[in-house]
Write a protein that binds this DNA or RNA. Sequence first.
DNA 1: TCATTTTTGAGGTACGCACATCAAAACGGC
DNA 2: GCCGTTTTGATGTGCGTACCTCAAAAATGA
Lengths: 345, 345
Amino acid sequence: MGRPTVTDIAREAGVSLATVDRVLNARPGVRAKTIAAVQEAVARLGYVRDMAAANLARGRSTRVAILLPDTESQFIQTLEDALAQAAALASSARMQVDLLRYPAADLHRLTAMLADLAAGGISGVALMAPETPLVRDALRALHAAGIPVVAMVSALPNCGAAHYVGIDSHAAGRTAGVLMGRFLGGRTPRVMVIAQSMLLRDSIERRRGFDAVMLADFPGVTVGQTLETHGVTQTLHQVMRESLRSDGPVGGIYLLGSGHRALAQVLSELGLLGQVVVIGHELTPHTISALRAGWLDAVIAQNVGHVARSTLRVLQAKADHQPINESQERLRLEIILRENLPQAL
Amino acid sequence: MGRPTVTDIAREAGVSLATVDRVLNARPGVRAKTIAAVQEAVARLGYVRDMAAANLARGRSTRVAILLPDTESQFIQTLEDALAQAAALASSARMQVDLLRYPAADLHRLTAMLADLAAGGISGVALMAPETPLVRDALRALHAAGIPVVAMVSALPNCGAAHYVGIDSHAAGRTAGVLMGRFLGGRTPRVMVIAQSMLLRDSIERRRGFDAVMLADFPGVTVGQTLETHGVTQTLHQVMRESLRSDGPVGGIYLLGSGHRALAQVLSELGLLGQVVVIGHELTPHTISALRAGWLDAVIAQNVGHVARSTLRVLQAKADHQPINESQERLRLEIILRENLPQAL
DNA sequence: TCATTTTTGAGGTACGCACATCAAAACGGC
DNA sequence: GCCGTTTTGATGTGCGTACCTCAAAAATGA
């Protein structure tokens, strides 16, 4: 005998198929006593709904939208690629994924897109976005409309019941701190922290985690304030020179966001390439080659493939009104050295 | 319009449903020209078989067996738990998993079990086993019978076309080496390597990877030969005392396999707990508490949850004669510090 | 050209479930 | 016990695919 089916449940509970169907799908018109009897039979036989057959019968192909900023960051591109790949696979499980980009500088446009989606009868939305009041309101509206929302990579608390798929940024910063502290060894106990900007929630949290560990576990190390580059190599060069001049040499550099390529260039110009410990975030073609080259010592990352698949699974589960397997969806914070670089991206 | 179905293919190719069915399922009695026409239509419409409906129609519930040694290791237990959990989830996708244990000391029994399974009409086998001629022959027989085999955690090359699910042990050893070298800092540049036994393939490979890195990147560090404990705390105590007496103090200890609890006890007795850098393998309740306690500095691990799910996915794909998504199945080698310990196991 | 074989078409049933309809039964109030 | 309401049963259809049978058509060989 294989798995029990609705027919088995009906026989076991002494009711008809129609009644079992009503109970399983929470349709009205069933006495509480009968509901209990059916549920008892379900429990006794260990019945689990065959979601494949159920969705097949529903003829429903879940349709979801995923929104990413149009930033020209390698990480965003990597994430989009992963999402596209996961979406291709998901299509064989009757799920259609619309990958969209919104102008990072125009959040009004983002909210407009979200409104359109809500009107267009989408069954779920995932996005990576900054947490502004504008965005928050738009997401709350989606939630009110019964459309599940998933926040990727950067958390969006207080935005309805948005599920977060991504790593704990504070822990990521702490991990970067421990590695920095231990890798410094006998080098100059001074660390420079560099970021493109401090507007994004995850950068702020990373910095906080980093500081917490440095303060507690490596009190002998001086950590400078965050140098913002705004993505301009020239600025990076300038602020680094200035910092080196005013505060003296450094033994380590912590790169909060992207900008590895520019950093390599400037470090090379300053004759520091390979001389200082550098710790960064996220696995992209740039960071991979930097790790291989040896001037980048460690990267704290999240597996974008897992982010993508988890996002789709969560959206699917929410659309099916099914519980989410938390332990499966919990993302690991990964430490990548040259030695454990994935063979292929 | 949703996804194309067999009916669409039939219309597009100008043939009947029956012919499409024959082509898709590689049934005989179709001209090469007709096959090409159907395949062309499949390609043009971007048809992907709905595996849910296909398996539903087949009425087939894939049944696989998973064999683990009956060793009382926390890692094996953790792995079994993960497999059981994954199996529970897989059951809702019409797959039945039989979790079996074989006596680690009696490989004849293992081969007998494998033979029984082959006779019992199983559609796939996954196992974690040493690579002996006996096992190799049994697996080759399975392969000859058309039953796919998956090796978990410890690779089984030359055993038919067994798929390997697990991390690269050599890379794991290399990673342990890098961390050891960098974490040693100003400590005594001497490292002790401890193992329960060196019979298992992965222990040997780890040791090799570790040595390679130490030799190349940290030539100032002396690495002792592997001390075998055979799982006896008494022996561990003895060999460690002896090594310390004859070769002097150590700054680090590399634990190749399990035995973290015993090591904690002995280190504590020797007054070395927390004084030396300790690097180990695999995430288990013991290693987790050791990381939390602070005397274990890093663990090189593979995510048992991923091992379990990947194993089941590979078995499912092989049973369905479907290609395996290599990039999804590639396991990451994880570095775990206290800072990035998963919140819950 | 005819007989034979190969290839194709048409149609049905089944898988496990969702969803709809209509009639029958049980229940409730009075 | 009557009536109206609520609850239940019986039955049907469809989702996309697999697999089966039988007949018709086409290709092949002599």
